[in-house]
């Protein structure tokens, strides 16, 4: 699988929120997208799945294995969503249906894309629950989202995104809504799963520490434009653009410094 975005531009009501963004993601590749709120990170992610809000238009090109997917009719997009490209959302409290059991929600993409029978779906759901390291998966499948903790819910979100075995996973700030300790666990899970399954990953975040721990290559977005792109190591060591410098400085200022011994 290769994803190739060229001059991706998103307009909402006459305002350009994503401005000529280009990037490539190769098979098994990981790409980070970092930027402040309103920099167009989420819109870039949503555009790739054709999930832009009402009134938004996207131009440019997004090619998935040499097939143009930007502007595909909804029917065609529905076939790609979940099965080729999976998505993990920011807020696991609102991205799960409150009145359906966890099991049903994990089974849904399997049902749609892989047309398995009921029993096979169930055992696949159990497999997925174990894959994302949910404790006591048999019990959890019959529970409702409000009975789970934030970290468990995000694990469910990841299980749903991976259920139909997509080749590309897009994660839109998947750890932002979680406690710091849980964040580390979820990041570790992403790292492990993406490696084990050979899935490509686009990871969106505003947090430099998170970015550093999960990807080696990143785009820095500012007001919809790519301010800088390259390896995260270079970004940390010698940020070239003003916005990258600001992000790095801010991260340094807030990170905990070990007090000097007297």
């Amino acid at each position: 699988m290769t994803l190739r975005a060229r001059d991706l531009t998103v307009n909402i009501g006459g305002r350009t929120v994503v401005d000529a963004v280009s990037f490539d993601v190769a098979d098994g590749d990981r790409l980070g997208i970092i930027g402040e709120s309103g920099s167009g990170k989420s819109m870039t992610a949503l555009a790739m799945l054709g999930l832009l809000p009402d009134g938004a238009t996207a131009t440019g090109s997004i090619r998935l294995d040499d097939r143009e997917i930007l502007g595909l009719p909804d029917r065609e997009l529905a076939r790609l969503r979940g099965s080729r490209i999976g998505m993990v959302f920011q807020e696991p409290r609102t991205s799960l249906n409150p009145i359906r059991t966890i099991g049903r929600q994990i089974m849904e993409p399997v049902r749609i894309h892989q047309r398995l029978g009921r029993a096979e779906c169930r055992s696949r759901a159990l497999e997925l629950a174990k894959l994302v390291a949910l404790n006591d998966p048999e019990t959890l499948l019959s529970r409702y989202p409000h009975q789970l903790s934030g970290g468990q819910r995000q694990r469910v979100g990841i299980a749903i995104a991976l259920a139909a075995e997509p080749q590309l996973l897009i994660a839109d700030e998947p750890t932002t809504a979680l406690d710091v300790t849980i964040q580390a666990e979820i990041l570790e899970l992403f790292d492990r799963l993406v490696d084990a399954l050979g899935t490509s990953l686009i990871f969106i975040t505003h947090d430099l520490a998170v970015l550093q721990s999960i990807v080696a290559r990143a785009l820095v977005l500012e007001r919809g434009q790519v301010a800088e792109s390259g390896s995260v190591e270079d970004l940390l060591r010698a940020p070239a653009s003003p916005i990258a410098r600001r992000i790095v400085d801010a991260a340094r200022a807030t990170s905990w410094q070990k007090p000097e011994a007297p």
């Binding site: 529905a78 969503r81 979940g82 998505m87 959302f89 249906n97 749609i112 259920a163």
Partner: peptide, 11 residues
């Protein structure tokens, strides 16, 4: 968001 998530899953 769960409806958007449903669409993202291919519903």
């Amino acid at each position: 968001e769960f409806v958007t998530a449903g669409i993202a899953a291919g519903l």
